[in-house]
Nucleic acid binder design. Structure first.
Lengths: 267, 267
DNA sequence: GCGTTGTTGTCCATATTATGGACAAAATAC
DNA sequence: GTATTTTGTCCATAATATGGACAACAACGC
């Protein structure tokens, strides 16, 4: 581990010590969260976190005893346990972002007709928090609410990274290096996509995570200038030619501004 | 800490070591969860967990850095952070219990007309996971979905304790001793209520948590005989005289059996 | 059946990490 | 203004978490 002193951007009080084990447990949890209901095999957690197997094993089993993690008997995979949603109930139900974005998502979805996603950043991951299905008969539904992927592998992730200060983005991308393999991409490619997104004003992937799909993402910023989320349209590639890409991007950018306004209003 | 070897009931593999810090962090989290949106002052966490202040302080602040806990600027209280619901999204949305209980809650609510609660046990707490408002114009709405209290202070808690093996119940009650003060009760009173509930077949509190209310709770068991939840009716005391208590209890017991059947069917 | 490979699980000596007593600084009450 | 309560920090020390090495088990091939 490296001792980082100060960041050029906002917060300066980052590195607090005396809780290595807790931090490790949390990074394990985040990997498990990426596995959703199916969970993740121990070996993969070891691989991705870079911790040793005994350590991961110990952490995971303590968390099982505590009800935070479950182990699927049949597959032996580890997954987020039911105590996590129970803890989550402590918070008021709909997040301010979802409230602020609701009307815009409805409008954009009606207007565009393809599947719309709202994705937030959580640590080094993107997390899909809302999805609206459009009227067009062919819809890209592969990504579900709750889906979690390393920042950088989806157009939403690229958009969010593009909206971050370059050094921060770079740091996240390199931190995710190990996890990129599973998505057939790498640090250089992602950095290239980020640069392209900055130039374009929105994130775009000709080759979506699903074969034959294309995605366009805009970034949504909080009043302090930090990216809060991304709004994404995914569709079969043939439906998003250059002309329509332009059209869709304009709608997304318009609604993005509306959401940013709504956030400001609610704060 | 004591070294428990074996339990008379089910699980025998309980005490795994090498993760004190993680367990402590989790017990802190559970206390914070009880504080809901408002959170809990540090001193209270210290008092209830029995940990030292430096330790709690360290844990809480690491969790803040990780996004698991938030500190409300104005009050200085600590609360569950937004990363917890994000992790929770990894699990499929409606819990099997909620699905199984849904129709029964609807029926019972329509029939009784007073507020109905579904409460689960989570560790040493009860957690309200569903609430149905009845048709009668005066409703007891003080307990909200997500509300968390020490097992023993509500009629639902008493019901769940009554359904547990006596030694387990006793252990939980003594573990909660410190927290009872805040609810104007104590170990002896709670143990008495549990015994009474076992005799009656359902839990009952003449003096509810809210002045002038009365509650009746039945316990719901999983196929293996462990209590999974409690179903509760709360109403102003005058509306629950001896005759109607009897009536309501019978409806609850009937629907309880229906839920138990539904759980068996879904397993 | 019996090696082979790829998992997961366990042990324990050791160094690293988390601990908590004591002290300090805010915030709040008086 | 001082007293009191609450939160925050330090650091020497002991207890805790660590990970190398080994073991058990499962899945596959033949």
């Amino acid at each position: 581990m490296d001792k980082i002193r100060s960041r050029s951007s906002a917060r300066v009080t980052e590195p607090r010590q005396g809780a290595q084990a807790i931090r490790r447990a949390l990074s394990v949890l985040r990997i498990l969260a990426a596995g959703r209901e199916n969970g993740v095999p121990l070996a993969e957690v070891v691989q991705v976190t870079g911790l040793t197997r005994p350590t991961v094993h110990r952490i995971v089993h303590v968390l099982i005893e505590e009800g935070i993690v479950e182990r699927h008997d049949r597959t032996g995979r580890y997954a987020i346990g039911n105590q996590v949603p129970e803890l989550a109930l402590a918070r008021p139900r709909p997040s301010p972002l979802l409230v602020a974005a609701g009307p815009s998502l409805r409008r954009a979805s009606a207007e565009i007709g393809d599947t719309l996603f709202l994705t937030v950043r959580t640590g080094n991951d993107t997390l899909c928090v809302d999805r609206r299905i459009g009227a067009y008969p062919i819809q890209v539904l592969s990504i579900e609410v709750g889906a979690r992927r390393p920042l950088g592998v989806s157009s939403a992730g690229v958009a969010i990274l593009a909206a971050l200060p370059a050094p921060d983005a770079r740091k996240i991308v390199t931190a995710n290096e190990k996890r990129f393999e599973g998505y057939r991409t790498d640090v250089a490619t992602v950095l290239g996509e980020i640069t392209a997104a900055r130039r374009l004003g929105y994130g775009m992937r000709e080759i979506g995570l699903v074969q034959g799909t294309k995605s366009i993402s805009t970034w949504i910023k909080t009043p302090d200038g930090r990216p809060a989320a991304a709004m994404t349209v995914s569709a079969v590639r043939t439906r998003l030619g250059p002309r329509r890409e332009q059209e869709v991007a304009e709608i997304l950018l318009r609604e993005t501004r509306a959401i940013e306004q709504a956030i400001r209003a609610s704060a």
